[in-house]
């Protein structure tokens, strides 16, 4: 069989193409169209052109959502990257107890965002939650801090829970990367009398450059779409303190039944996703990756 297409081969790619075209590409294009409609999803729609776009950018809500999304992005990177890096390098060590630790470190990966969100909402509950009970017994604070109900704290707390959920995944990435660093590099450093910091900054970190880039991009693109956890934890509240872009989109479209406004936000999400993803391809060469599964 050569490299020419024939009807059988067209038939082979057809299912994938049809699925993708009908349930991903077509909806995406429709989102652009819907963004020009005044429509509640039931009665007949009215074409209003760019009016929705105008009102999105005039109202402070969308800009507020954009700013929160950016905050979550930055904060997520700042919290997740150093911890994941250190945990991953720690786990890549040969000591037996580290392997045992690893078994427990990865357990949060087994739970869905919803499961994690529900659990943390109980841990942080101001009336009967674990955290306040603990703090009270240690005589720290007044023992009834409302972690998720506090406008100033909510976004930070949500971001920390997101970090709790995703750090295991990223430390898994770093562990894989760190295990591939050749022993000979460390031996040479030991002979040269390098101490543990020198070794980390002049060998481990540079060798993990590509892992660092991959992980960072995943954190950034991921932060764009955090929704499940926020939905369960705060539902965007208190007020709009945790109404990030994806949450705002959901609320406009499915709670306020304003399909047009929701679609404007959806298009903004898509554009941001594509931009971030182009950066991914540019910096990680992800589309050309080879034998990525080795070295686990």
């Amino acid at each position: 069989m050569g490299t020419k297409m024939n009807w059988q081969r067209w038939l082979m790619i057809a299912p994938a193409v049809v699925f993708f075209a009908v349930f991903a590409l077509f909806p995406m294009l429709m989102a652009v169209y819907y963004s020009g409609l005044q429509w509640n999803g039931i009665s007949s729609a009215k074409w209003v052109g760019l009016a929705n776009w105008g009102s999105v950018f005039r109202s402070g809500d969308a800009l507020h959502a954009l700013r929160l999304t950016a905050e979550v992005m930055v904060l997520s990177w700042v919290v997740q990257t150093p911890i994941s890096l250190l945990v991953g390098v720690f786990l890549a060590g040969r000591q037996r107890h580290r392997a045992v630790f690893g078994v427990f470190y990865f357990v949060p990966l087994l739970f869905s965002s919803v499961a994690i969100g529900v659990t943390w909402s109980y841990i942080l509950n101001p009336n009967f939650g674990l955290l306040d009970a603990l703090l009270k017994s240690l005589h720290i604070g007044n023992g009834n801090q409302n972690w998720l109900g506090n406008t100033h704290l909510a976004l930070l707390v949500v971001t920390l829970i997101i970090a709790w959920q995703f750090i295991p995944f990223h430390s898994l990435l770093y562990q894989g990367g760190a295990k591939q660093i050749p022993d000979s590099l460390y031996e040479a450093a030991t002979i040269d009398g390098a101490n543990v910091w020198n070794t980390f900054f002049s060998i481990t970190l540079p060798q993990l450059k590509y892992t660092l880039i991959t992980s960072s991009v995943l954190v950034l693109t991921g932060s764009l779409t955090y929704f499940d956890l926020i939905y369960v934890l705060t539902d965007g509240g208190p007020g709009d303190a945790t109404t990030v872009l994806a949450m705002d989109m959901y609320k406009q479209a499915f709670v306020n039944q304003n399909i047009g406004l929701g679609s404007v936000l959806a298009v903004i999400l898509a554009v941001a996703g594509v931009i971030l993803s182009i950066l991914t391809l540019r910096f990680t060469g992800f589309s050309r990756m080879e034998s990525q599964l080795e070295g686990m």
């Binding site: 993708f20 009908v22 349930f23 991903a24 590409l25 077509f26 909806p27 995406m28 429709m30 989102a31 819907y34 999803g41 693109t221 764009l224 779409t225 929704f227 994806a246 989109m249 959901y250 479209a253 499915f254 399909i259 929701g262 679609s263 959806a266 298009v267 999400l269 898509a270 996703g273 594509v274 971030l276 993803s277 182009i278």
Partner: peptide
């Protein structure tokens, strides 16, 4: 390119469809 599209961005038309 589809790799880049978040599910959230298409959910409204998917619901209608």
């Amino acid at each position: 390119v589809g790799l880049a599209l978040p599910i959230q961005a298409a959910i409204i038309p998917i619901y209608v469809l």
